[in-house]
Each structure stands twice: as C-alpha cells, then as structure tokens.
C-alpha cells in the first residue's frame, strides 16, 4: 500500500470537518461549558488552516498569527468561564436557556 504525500488540501479538509463539528456543538448544546469547548474547537480548526498555508507558502506570518489566535483563545476562555461562574452563582445552572436577564 502506498500513501500519497500530505498536502495543504488534507489540512483544509480536516479543518473544515473540525469547524463543522464545533459549529454543531455551539448551535445545539445547551450547556455553556460545552459551548465554550466547541468555540475552542473552531479556533483550533482556524489555526490548522493558518499553519497549513504558512507551510504551503513558506511564509512564517501564518504561524505568527496562529500564536496570536492562541493568545486570544486563552483570553476568551478566561472571560467565558468567568461569565459561566457568574451565571452559576446567580441561577445555579450552566444551561444557556436559563440565562435570560442581563442583571440579576
């Protein structure tokens, strides 16, 4: 059995599938923790694209922006989980449907 070399297209297909799975998670799950984890999946799929294109073009800028994306994702996770904790203190739940008011 011979296997062809892996090209950018393989990475793009994988990233598209990963993005789709994460999107389904965001749109369908009711638990805020799972939704935040799905957002991390989306950001990871974008990073895969950036790194694949950096490799294809021999240009490091894509990798630099992958590092920026990771930094932004870390900040997003911190703030999102802070919001989750505030929601849990107020309503004793992590379900999105129960979060209906801006001020408790």
């Amino acid at each position: 059995m011979t296997l062809g070399a892996i090209g950018t297209g393989h990475y793009l297909v994988l990233a598209a599938i990963l993005f789709g799975i994460g999107l389904v998670g965001i749109l369908t799950r009711r638990n805020l923790i799972t939704v935040l984890m799905s957002i991390e999946l989306l950001l990871n799929s974008v990073n895969l694209n950036l790194v694949a294109f950096a490799h294809e073009r021999g240009d490091l800028t894509g990798q630099v922006f992958a590092v920026f994306t990771i930094a932004v994702a870390a900040g997003e996770a911190a703030v999102g989980l802070g919001i989750l904790l505030a929601l849990f203190r107020m309503h004793q739940t992590t379900e999105l449907d129960r979060a209906r008011e801006l001020e408790g």
């Binding site: 990073n47 895969l48 790194v51 490799h55 992958a66 990771i70």
Partner: peptide, 18 residues
C-alpha cells in the same frame, strides 16, 4: 499536526497554553 507542518514553536505553545 502543527509539528508535522514544521510549526514547531506553535505546536509547543499549543501544548502549553491549550
């Protein structure tokens, strides 16, 4: 997968940060 695309630094940062 990052390591396989010669993004060694990004791969290690991915493990550290994520």
């Amino acid at each position: 997968l990052f390591l396989l695309r010669h993004a060694e630094f990004v791969g290690v940062v991915q493990i550290f940060v994520y």
